[in-house]
Design a protein around this nucleic acid. Structure first.
Length: 260
DNA sequence: CGTCTTTGACCCGCGC
DNA sequence: GCGCGGGTCAAAGACG
């Protein structure tokens, strides 16, 4: 693909003079708007193309990895599972093995944050940590501690390719209800940073909750309401389209005020 | 004092 | 059988 230059600059050097009337200015503005719309289309197409290329590259990489695991039979079972469940980032970041009891979730986090705690709505107890051969960052082992007889385990390790990504491998199925609501609603300080609907590559932070909070499932109605408001505000302000629309609405309003 | 995290030791499966 | 490496255990310490 040959690089095409896209001019996104806004040419609004329109100083109305005696020679130019309002109709002329309007015509130029419309033309400029059309030009920018076209540039926007071009940019969108190029972005889509880049995404397609990225997906294709990821697929090639995964095929290569799978091929490698086939020709090196010394690799262990666990590694095979991990390789076989690795797919492209566009595929929701949550992969399930042919066995439904093992799933893998990639979670984006801050590379400078050494924490290996990933909040997923359940309560986990760490029972081990190991440095594995193929990855310099340690792997943490967790057991689900929400229900005493829950057999689910998970492993969390920073990705070798991208230190910003935590690779979480779940084994088994929970035999109890999801614990997320109780956690999120009882800790308001985290409300603005946590998506109520778990996004597979959602930004996460240090996900250790105070012990007392985890134990206490009692939820006050007012705090839930406040939490919901905070979450809605946070998700809206994160939305670029919303911010743009809001900015234009505000500028439009102030223009109206100026007109009066 | 109860619960959780840390971490070294131990167990076990796999490949040679 | 031995060595390697991943997974688990359990004692000690931290924390509220």
């Amino acid at each position: 693909m040959e690089p095409t230059c896209v001019d996104t600059s806004l040419n609004l050097n329109l100083v109305p003079s005696q020679d130019t009337d309002v109709a002329m200015v309007a015509k130029v503005l419309v033309e400029e708007l059309e030009r920018l719309s076209n540039e926007n289309k071009k940019l969108t197409e190029r972005l889509n193309l880049m995404c397609d290329n990225y997906i294709a590259l990821q697929k090639h990489l995964n095929e290569f990895k799978n091929h490698e695991s086939v020709i090196t039979p010394r690799k262990r079972k666990v590694e095979c599972i991990e390789n076989c469940t690795t797919t492209t980032k566009e595929e929701t970041f949550q992969q399930h093995n042919s066995s439904p009891k093992i799933s893998k979730v990639l979670v984006r986090t801050d590379a400078s944050n050494p924490s290996l705690y990933v909040r997923d709505g359940y309560q986990w107890r760490k029972y081990g940590q190991k440095v594995t051969r193929d990855n310099p960052s340690p792997r943490a082992y967790f057991k689900c501690s929400f229900a005493p007889c829950c057999p689910v385990k998970k492993k969390v390790q920073r990705s070798v390719e991208d230190p910003n990504v935590l690779v979480t491998t779940y084994e088994g199925e929970h035999n109890h209800a999801h614990h997320q609501q109780a956690q999120t609603s009882s800790n308001q300080s985290e409300a603005s940073t946590y998506n109520s609907v778990p996004s597979p590559l959602a930004s996460t932070h240090d996900l250790v909750l105070p012990r007392k909070v985890l134990v206490d499932n009692g939820v006050q109605r007012s705090s839930i309401h406040q939490l919901l408001v905070q979450q809605l505000t946070a998700s809206l302000t994160r939305d670029h389209n919303f911010r743009t629309a809001l900015a234009s609405a505000i500028s439009g309003t102030s223009l109206d005020v100026e007109k009066r």
